[in-house]
Structures are given as C-alpha cells and as structure tokens.
Design a binder for these strands. Structure first.
Length: 423
DNA sequence: TCTGGGGTCCTAGGACCC
DNA sequence: TCTGGGGTCCTAGGACCC
C-alpha cells in the first residue's frame, strides 16, 4: 500500500502558524509579483475565491470579507516543508518527496489491519511537531491514494483527514465520488475529451479497457492511468532525484522593461540564480537558453504576449556564473528589439552533468582552481548571510524591474533579524 | 493597469544508419 | 516497369503537476 501525505492549504497554513489570530479566518497567498492566488484556507474557498485566479479580479471580494493577504515567502515555506518531510522520514520506512507540500510513503510491511491507526498517528505526529495540518490518503496505487487524499481533505464521508481505500467496495465508492477532472494526471485537455465520451467520474474511467485508453488517452500514459485506477500499481516510488535535468529561473517583471540595459541586468540576475542552483547540486551545464516575453499590445487592447527564445550549446560544460552570464546576456542582446515592451524573461540551463565528470576540450585549459574557489566562497557567503551579499556587477544595482512582493511576512525561521517577537 | 514559477514525461517526426 | 525494413537519436512541443 502507498500513502500520500498532503499539507492542507500549505502556504496559507505557514502564514497562520506565525499569526495565530488568523485561525478560523480566511487567508490567501499570492504568487510571485502578487499576480495570482495560489493558496487559500477553507474559509477563503468558502467565499468563492478561485484557485489560480488573478488577485486584482478578486480584490473586492477579498477586501469586503477582510481576507488576510500575503505575498509568497519561499524562505518560510521551504523551511517548514523541510520540517514536515523530516518528520515523515522518521515515521515511515520509505518517503518520496513529491512536491513542497506532498510526500508519498511506501507502506509495504505495515500490517494492513492497522493502516488506519498508523495513518492517524502519522497525521497527528506531523501536526504536533510542525504545526502544519495534513491529510492522508492510503490505497494500493499512487493514483488511488490521491483519490483517497482528496476525499479525506473534503471530509465527505466523515474521514477525519485520513482515508484508506482497501476493499473493492471502498474503492468503488471513492471513484464514484471523484469527477474525472480531479484525477491525478487528467488535466484540462484530458477531462474535456473524457466528458465528450460521456466518461464523467473516475469510476467510469476505471471501467474502460486498456485498449481504449491506449488509443484515446495518450498511449502508455492512458493505460497506466486506467490500471492504477483499477488498483494495479504502475507508478513506483521514485528515487529521489538529487540532480535535476534542467534548471530554470524565469520571472515576470514588476514593471515593463524597455531598455536593453535593464533586460540584460535581469537576465544576468536570473543566470546567477540558476548557476547557484546548479552548483548546489554539483552540476555543470552544457546548454543555456534564454527567452524574453514582450507584450506590445497592438491589437485592440488584446493581451497577446509573444515569446522569443535563443539557445546555445557551450563548448565545455560549466558552472561558473561569469561564463554563463556572458553567454546569457549575449543571447538576450540578440533577442532584444528596440521599442518592445518586455514583461518577462527567463534562463534555462540544461544538458546537466555532474561537475566532476566534465570532459574538457583538448585545446582548452580547464577552469582555474581559483575560479572554483571563488564560486564556493560567493555561495557560502550568500547562503549564510543575505542572499545577495556578493554579486557580479552585471546584475546591476537598481533593479527597477524587480518583482512586486508588497505583502510578504517575515522569514521567521531563516533570518535572525526577522524572528517572531513575543511581547 | 493587473493573470506565477519550476519542473517531468511523453510523442511525433525528421535525420541518419546499415 | 520497378525503389525495404528496422533501428537509434535528437528536438520541439504538448500535457500535466503543484
């Protein structure tokens, strides 16, 4: 059996943890640039505030109902996420961290007759140790455990935040209560297609044949999904990916950028950030790609952003910020068109290999040890003190384009000068 | 005026090989 | 008049996830 442990309204729960007066009150957290609503407490959901809805469209609803609003505070969420996952690793034999607020647990070896008590124990211990409420779904497959978790969260069948789908009867009931668009792995496109075939619930889909799924639901992906719904495990526990295959740093600008200088500064800043992530996983990248998004709004005020990108394969893989920045800014310069209004840019590093296996070019000197050492020092200082204490000049100092984060709470658990103050 | 960021996996199709 | 079959590798793009 597998379990999925999912934090309830994670970001909003983190904010509440340090502001107990918000308990029982509606709270929402916004995406970067204060653009969309990405986390809502039950009270906020009850007001009809939609997930991923633009903030400005919900502003009236939010103000009328005195909803507490926060910009996203990734230092805080990242640290609390680590605490939750550390707790789960103590409680369960095998843990796969799936996202910032979810983990799969492999429950092989746990006595099936004690699954409910065990899950309840996991839930209560996690909540006691971290202060973050969680829901637990347990079933023979990952897809079914997600179905269970969703119902546990909704508390539809009186579950107390834990739901076990063990018997065929339990599975049938749960699947009948799950609309197709709420199945893990079925998105917008898939659910519309399924509805056209008059497949409306997870139970309907479960009863389709594998041949049908292969033909109509994206080949192997569809087959796997139907099998998982039937209780046949096809998606195993994943090895924890310590080395990402791709590292991206992309952001909307706080306000539009028109000048090349500013665009290059932004791209240099994102490159430095991406390179930092690259070094953290002891990687080196061979490919770098840069994209810029402009919105010239030419056609009757229609919102039509256009994206242009450019790609480069480096002669030798590298993790040096200065080398990557040189290439990235050159790519940005080539993409730039005078008079365009830029709203977003991004840098993507790919073709990542472990840095101790870099194959140097025969005609080229390997990186001097001094550069390696410099990178190491820069990373250490920035990690230990403030995130941008040491930086390359190319990133600029003014940063007019920097994103908006007007309602960010303190980084209570990762900054000495932002600790919670008890009067 | 205003709609996030960072990933993974899969498929189709083209180039190329013997 | 007539022109195979089976593979691999790469890339772009789509779909999906949280």
């Amino acid at each position: 059996m597998k379990a999925i442990v999912d934090c309830n309204s994670f970001y909003a729960a983190c904010e509440r943890l340090f502001k107990p007066s918000l308990h029982g009150k509606p709270v929402v957290v916004l995406s970067n640039n204060d653009g969309c609503i990405v986390s809502r407490t039950d009270e906020a959901k009850a007001l009809g505030i939609r997930m991923a809805g633009p903030y400005y469209q919900n502003k009236k609803e939010i103000e009328d109902n005195k909803v507490a609003v926060f910009s996203s505070n990734y230092h805080l969420y990242g640290d609390l996420s680590r605490r939750v996952m550390d707790t789960l690793r103590i409680l369960a034999p095998d843990v796969e961290v799936y996202s910032v607020d979810e983990s799969f647990l492999d429950l092989t070896g746990i006595d099936p007759s004690t699954l409910y008590e065990y899950s309840l124990f996991v839930k209560h211990t996690t909540e006691l140790w971290t202060g973050i409420p969680v829901s637990v779904g347990v079933a023979p497959t990952k897809v079914l455990s997600k179905v269970a978790n969703r119902l546990a969260k909704k508390d539809k069948i009186g579950t107390k935040g834990v739901m076990i789908l063990q018997t065929p009867e339990q599975q049938m009931e749960a699947l009948q209560l799950t609309p197709v668009e709420d199945i893990w792995g079925v998105g917008m496109a898939g659910s519309q297609k399924l509805r056209m075939f008059n497949i409306n619930t997870a139970w309907d889909l479960r009863n389709m044949s594998e041949e049908w799924a292969s033909k109509n639901l994206g080949g192997v992906v569809g087959v796997r999904l139907v099998k998982e719904l039937k209780g046949i495990p096809c998606i195993g526990m994943k090895e924890q990916l310590t080395r990402k295959k791709m590292i991206a740093t992309t952001r909307m600008f706080g306000k539009p950028v028109f000048e090349l200088r500013e665009l290059k500064e932004a791209v240099a800043t994102y490159t430095a950030r991406a390179a930092e992530k690259l070094r953290r996983q002891q990687g080196a990248a061979r490919s770098i790609s840069v994209f810029v998004v402009s919105n010239n709004r030419q056609y009757n005020h229609h919102y039509e952003p256009t994206s242009r990108s450019s790609f480069l394969t480096l002669p030798t893989p590298t993790y040096l910020t200065n080398v990557l920045t040189t290439h990235a800014t050159a790519l940005a310069e080539a993409l730039y068109r005078e008079g365009s209004k830029y709203i977003k840019a991004g840098v993507i590093l790919s073709d990542i290999i472990p840095c101790d296996t870099i194959q140097y070019n025969l005609f080229e000197e390997p990186e001097p040890a001094a550069m390696q050492k410099l990178m190491h020092i820069v990373d250490n200082v920035n990690f230990g003190m403030r995130s941008d204490m040491l930086k390359f000049a190319s990133v600029g100092t003014k940063k007019d384009w920097k994103m908006r984060q007007e309602m960010r709470s303190n980084r209570f658990t990762t900054r000495w000068d932002e600790l919670c103050v008890v009067k």
